[in-house]
Each structure stands twice: as structure tokens, then as C-alpha cells.
Write a protein that binds this DNA or RNA. Structure first.
Length: 433
DNA sequence: TCTGGGGTCCTAGGACCC
DNA sequence: TCTGGGGTCCTAGGACCC
């Protein structure tokens, strides 16, 4: 017999907003939203903003009047800061247990199965207080025998203040659990999205409780294999283990919607070179090589005549060399470019990734070792300089062909933590006599 | 005027083979 | 209805997540 599994989900409340508030404590208890690239969409909302009915993911322009009328403070997303704060939380959690899965920038699962904890609710309160005190971000914690139930518990903790930020599913009574499952709408269950929710409701399954009572067979018919696992997890048997090791990436994508539409070849080329450079850097950082590279470009999908082009190149030799990647992409760009189009968005993707290690083993003696080494050394030098002295210190000329494509972020907060020029200032005033 | 960015997995269907 | 029957591999598209 295997011991009972116990997971805790630590979920940051309104994460991006909470990060902004660290540097702007005056915004506590006030409506705040964070906007995506180009200040296009709403990607985080404070509780006060949620209470105003501002939805997640909505186009910002539709809510400008509300922002003004209700004095909502808006920020352009500042991912450098959010990433930095996320790492601090992760390292604090790692001191509690090394059995941690960093699920996203604002969520981590901990495996508590092997820890000796008498009172999970008290344990959760302690963790919550520690993160609040040391980092300043409020979190919600759910503790349960499966990841799906831990997720559901943390949502309950987030929604109902009375729980004090922690819901302990383990020590709750069966009656309480049924009541809780019955309160969770089907659309709020982890793994049920926009398409499945109406489909399940049409079957008369409107709550997490109803879903948990489904026959696994039936769930699989309705939702595929994932549905079967979901039902099992909801009824308390774990299907999704803790994934400690971050699996190697299978694809890398770098894409941007332009600050303004582009019709000039050299501007498009600059965009493809910049995104190719960033994607290739990510590739090298993860010690990977790509066997397929490509890009897509499209017009504005909200305007009539929407079109999208995709170009792909299968490589004979896998690579992670920026120069090679961006020159091949730029050539392919020529094949589809037309000066009569208004391009709106472009992305570079890298597929079919394999580890540098694998290349060395597989192709030992097949690659011209000399040529490969020289390219590798060149990229290492570039990466070293850019890591040490700041991104973009050295770059390929193609990146510089035109910058009108670059996204706008007019209301981004300063990069308090990652730019020397933007450190917060504290003014110490002589005490008045 | 103005609608983000980055991933993973599953499945259905086509191509191809015997 | 129904056009042989399976098996494998690949890909496009759909669905989900944050």
C-alpha cells in the first residue's frame, strides 16, 4: 500500500498587481490593473478592480472610461520585476522542502507527503505569513491529496476571506468537502476551459461535485483522457505526480504584436532579426539546438482581409547560432513579403529541439568540428558580454534596420530591481526642529 | 484609433505500408 | 450506413494552462 499523497499549492494573489504594490504601498486597497504588451489586454487585476467588474483578458481600450471614472491605476507589464520576485518566493519555499514543482510564475506545488505536519491549516498560515513578511506578496494555499483538489482549495481560500488564506482539504469532513465541491462551478475547475464548460453543462454537469460523480468511462468520452484523470483526482486519488525536474523545452516561440502596423521590408526584417536573436539566446541558455526553424506573420485579425503566412525551414544540421538563424529567416521573409500588406504581428519559432550533448554524441566526426567550434565560440562571447553588460549591448546589424515595429509600453513602472538607472530612491529629510 | 505572449498535450485524419 | 483490415507515423488543429 502506498502512503497518502499530500500536495500544497501556493498561489500568489493577483500576482502582477501585488508586485507593483511592493513599490507603491499607496495603492493598497485601491483598484489596480496590469496591462499586456502594447497596453493591449488586462492581464492582472486587484480585488478592487475585480469588484468593478473588469474581466481578465479584456481589451484595455474598452475599459478606459471605467479606469478614468473609478480612478483605476494602470501599469504596463514589467516581467523582469515579476520574474525576480517569483524567484525569491521559490527560494523561500525551497527552504521548506526540496520537493517543489514551480508550476508557473505565481504558483508552486509542494509535496508534503514525507513531512511531519500535525496541523496543515496552521502550517499553511505560517508559510503564508512568512512569504508576506519576507517578500510582501499575499498568497493563497490549498492542501489536499491531489493537485486538482489543492488547486480547488487554494481558489476557495482566495475567494472566501473567512478561511484566512488557507484551505485544508485533508482534515475537512466529508460533508464539508461535498459542500465545497458543490459550490465550485464547472467552469472554475482546473482543466475545464471555455469549450468544455458549456458542453458539460449541457450534460447536466454544472459543478465540481457533479463532475466528481461522473463515471470515469463517461468522463473520457466527454473530455478525452484528461477528463478521466480529472474525475479521479476530484474524488481524491492522485493521477498527476509532482514534476520536480523542469522538462526540456520542446519548442521556443518569440512573438510580438507591433506598436504600429508595418509595410516596409526593412522594418519587418528588423523585427524578425530581433525575435530570432531572442529565441536563439533562449535556445543556447537551455543548451539546446534546433532542427526546424520558422516564422509566422499576420495582419490584424480584428480587421477584414485577415491573413497569416507561415514559413518553415528544415535544417540539415541543427543549430543555435543567431547569425545562421536570422539570415535564413530573413531570406524566407523575402519569399512572402508584399509592400501592399499591413503586417501586425510576427513570431519566430524553433522546433525539433535536441540537446547540445546529443549532437556531440550523434555526429561525432560528421560535423566539420572546426567550423562548428568557431560559431559556438562567437556566440558564447556575445552571450557573455550581453549577460554581463545588459541585453542588446552587442547585436546583429539586421536588428537595427528600423524600430517602428517595437511595442509600446507607456505606463510601465521603473525596472526597480534590474536597472541601475531605475532603482527606487529614498529621500531622507532632516527632522524639522 | 486601440484586442498579449508563451507553452503543452491530445486527437482525428491522412499517407503509407503490408 | 456499409466499398478489406490493420498498423505506424506525421501533422494540423483544438483544447487546456498561466
Amino acid at each position: 500500500m502506498t502512503a497518502q499523497t499530500i500536495f500544497a499549492l501556493i498561489d500568489c494573489n493577483n500576482f502582477f498587481v501585488s508586485c507593483e504594490r511592493l513599490f507603491r504601498p499607496d495603492l493598497e486597497n485601491k483598484p489596480v490593473v496590469v496591462l499586456s504588451s502594447n497596453d493591449g489586454c488586462i492581464v492582472a487585476r486587484s480585488n478592487e478592480a475585480k469588484a468593478l467588474g473588469i474581466p481578465m483578458g479584456a481589451p484595455a481600450f474598452q475599459w478606459r472610461e471605467t479606469f478614468k471614472r473609478e480612478r483605476v491605476t494602470t501599469f504596463s507589464a514589467n516581467f523582469e520585476i515579476y520574474g525576480d520576485i517569483s524567484k525569491r518566493i521559490t527560494s523561500l519555499l525551497t527552504t521548506i522542502t526540496p520537493r517543489i514543482e514551480v508550476y508557473s510564475v505565481d504558483e508552486s506545488f509542494l509535496d508534503l507527503s514525507l513531512l511531519h505536519i500535525d496541523d496543515y491549516a496552521a502550517w499553511g498560515s505560517m508559510v503564508r505569513a512568512s512569504i508576506l513578511k519576507n517578500i510582501g506578496v499575499p498568497v493563497s494555499i490549498g492542501i489536499a491529496p491531489t493537485k486538482t483538489l489543492a488547486k480547488l482549495s487554494s481558489e476557495l481560500a482566495k475567494q472566501h476571506q473567512a478561511f484566512g488564506g488557507v484551505v485544508d482539504w485533508i482534515q475537512a469532513s466529508d460533508d464539508w468537502r461535498r459542500g465545497a465541491l458543490n459550490k465550485v462551478l464547472i467552469k472554475d475547475v482546473w482543466g475545464v476551459g471555455r469549450q468544455l464548460a458549456p458542453k458539460l453543462r449541457a450534460e447536466g454537469i454544472g459543478t465540481a461535485l457533479a463532475l466528481s460523480q461522473l463515471r470515469p468511462q463517461h468522463a473520457q468520452q466527454l473530455m478525452g483522457i484528461h477528463g478521466r484523470q480529472l474525475v479521479t483526482e476530484l474524488s481524491g486519488t492522485s493521477c498527476y505526480p509532482l514534476e520536480r525536474e523542469h522538462a526540456a523545452a520542446k519548442s521556443i516561440l518569440r512573438s510580438r504584436t507591433f506598436g504600429e502596423d508595418v509595410s516596409q521590408a526593412h522594418v519587418l526584417e528588423s523585427a524578425i532579426a530581433t525575435m530570432g536573436t531572442q529565441a536563439a539566446f533562449t535556445l543556447r541558455r537551455q543548451k539546446l539546438l534546433a532542427r526546424r526553424i520558422g516564422f509566422f506573420v499576420n495582419t490584424n485579425r480584428h480587421k477584414p482581409g485577415y491573413r497569416r503566412w507561415v514559413q518553415e525551414i528544415q535544417l540539415n544540421q541543427p543549430t543555435n547560432d543567431t547569425g545562421q538563424i536570422i539570415s535564413m529567416l530573413a531570406q524566407k521573409l523575402n519569399d512572402i513579403f508584399s509592400s501592399t500588406q499591413s503586417y501586425h504581428r510576427l513570431g519566430v519559432f524553433l522546433y525539433d529541439l535536441l540537446s547540445e550533448q546529443a549532437l556531440q554524441t550523434d555526429l561525432l566526426g560528421l560535423v566539420s568540428a572546426h567550423g562548428h567550434d568557431r560559431a559556438t565560440q562567437r556566440m558564447q562571447a556575445v552571450d557573455h558580454i550581453n549577460t554581463k553588460h545588459g541585453r542588446g549591448k552587442i547585436y546583429f546589424a539586421a536588428e537595427d534596420l528600423g524600430n517602428s515595429w517595437q511595442p509600446k509600453h507607456q505606463i510601465r513602472s521603473p525596472r526597480y530591481l534590474s536597472s541601475w538607472d531605475e532603482l527606487p530612491e529614498a529621500h531622507i529629510m532632516p527632522r524639522a526642529k
